[in-house]
Design a protein around this nucleic acid. Structure first.
Lengths: 182, 182
DNA sequence: TAAATATACGGAGGGAGCCTCCGAATATGC
DNA sequence: GCATATTCGGAGGCTCCCTCCGTATATTTA
């Protein structure tokens, strides 16, 4: 990769990070290019679609969520609590940009999405935490890992909508996931 | 109101209903005007904002939800079940158009929104059903009517996202609303 | 170091959608 | 039938999307 290309690539990712944080995932790409001091053509060469750019911006955060998953899995907490903690972290991350939860849901649905891979990864981690929690009988048996992602997206969407007190609502949802102690 | 104005108004509402159903609330207004056989200026005179048009399209459905509320309130079902049934109906209605749940959430937040009034109404009905259910001890006491609307919106959003099996996820949420039988 | 070449840059341009504004058209009341 | 208050319609200015290709520049080679 040529040096100038590398430089522009990095500048674009950083600028996009700020723009997405400020204006959501629908931020103007022309603005991002201009702010990065780069032509719009350059942006499109490096990132053919908005999703490509978004995925790159999110790379680190995704890795962090993965780590978090491993951490709670190996931690001392009870399986249900470990799952809950991870879900909360995932929700927080999914809500960093307005519009992101919709992209995630798209990734869950369409194989071709740029987020399909990331979704698969999250689902895998969730699956591990989930089955472990289900084995203890503390989480209802009729939910799958994909349900987890969907519920997480919905909660993240709520959070995106300018809802600051999402924590309590997430708590309600988590209670719903717990098995009825009949 | 002049006869031609009335005619155009009605045509616009009907055309918009189809367009929103097909393409979501972001459907092109210029297309709607064209399909209705009307100039774009005419559309904007009758409906200064997209929300105005959307609100008009939803008028009947909103009334239906109100009726439903009265119906379950006076019905024989247990308060919790009445609440659950009404919430399910509200979710179904909120999910008729892609993008509607976001508008609803906006209406809940901003007084100036075209949906503010409708939201207030829904919240009032929900409040009645909720307090009644809470009085029986079957629903947790730490939720308010606004929480209901938020959770409904989140579920409707899920449904909008092309999720067909939302019923089960809604069930999970409803379980979360029920009081822990300690 | 200077030429050759592979690579990357940038923005003009066509398309779509939003919304405003105002001259032209037309219902309605007298 | 005419006056006039309403309403109509779409051109036009704006923003944004995305593509295409002539120009510029980094890197390699002699």
């Amino acid at each position: 990769m040529r040096a100038d290309a590398r430089r522009n690539y990095d500048r674009l990712v950083e600028t996009a990070r700020h723009a997405f944080a400020e204006r959501g995932t629908e931020a103007s790409l022309e603005d991002i290019a201009k702010t990065a001091g780069v032509g719009i053509g350059t942006l499109y060469r490096h990132f053919p679609t908005r999703q490509t750019l978004l995925r790159e911006v999110l790379r680190d955060g995704m890795a962090a969520i993965q780590d978090k998953g491993r951490q709670v899995l190996e931690g001392p907490a009870a399986p249900v609590d470990a799952l809950a903690e991870w879900l909360r972290a995932l929700i927080r991350h999914t809500a960093t940009f307005r519009g992101l939860s919709a992209e995630i849901m798209g990734g869950l649905r369409e194989e071709s999405s740029e987020f399909s891979e990331a979704c698969g990864l999250m689902e895998a981690i969730g699956a591990e935490l989930l089955t472990r929690a289900q084995a203890t009988g503390a989480v209802r048996a009729d939910v799958g890992p994909d349900d987890l992602i969907k519920l997480v997206s919905a909660m993240a969407w709520l959070s995106e909508q300018g809802e600051d007190d999402t924590g309590r609502l997430v708590g309600i949802m988590l209670d719903g996931l717990r098995a009825v102690s009949s």
